[in-house]
């Protein structure tokens, strides 16, 4: 159990700059009314951020090169989407996705 001053400073600093953007909007909305244009903008945040999170995790990042598609993840996404349409239940979607991924690894990776 040891910690250097260097990593302590890094952790505290990173903690602070992560915390502030998280709480500042919660303090701001109490003090002022948000203009309609900002509300319109924010109404697209869930759709855009979820799409971006999904696309980003389906791609493999390589510095200074075009990202490539993670084929196994992309393949597992097909049954996952189908299960989403059928069940509309998050728990089932996650279970189907994980099982699909495990099966893909089992059948596509090991025979090689």
């Amino acid at each position: 159990m040891q910690i250097s001053i260097y990593s302590l400073l890094v952790i505290l600093g990173c903690g602070l700059v992560t915390w502030l953007p998280r709480i500042i909007p919660f303090l701001m909305v109490r003090k002022m009314r948000i203009p309609q244009i900002i509300l319109d903008f924010l109404s697209y945040v869930p759709l855009c951020i979820l799409t971006a999170l999904l696309v980003q995790s389906l791609m493999i990042y390589q510095p200074d090169r075009w990202p490539t598609l993670h084929y196994q993840y992309a393949l597992a996404t097909i049954p996952t989407v189908i299960s989403a349409i059928i069940t509309k239940n998050l728990m089932w979607i996650v279970i189907v996705g994980m099982v699909a991924m495990a099966l893909i690894r089992l059948f596509l990776i090991y025979p090689e």
Partner: peptide, 20 residues
């Protein structure tokens, strides 16, 4: 292993679909 890593992506798929 066991597709644990995919659970996060499956969650994004599900949350995006439910949002849509």
């Amino acid at each position: 292993q066991f597709g644990f890593d995919y659970s996060l992506i499956a969650m994004f798929v599900g949350l995006l679909y439910l949002q849509l």
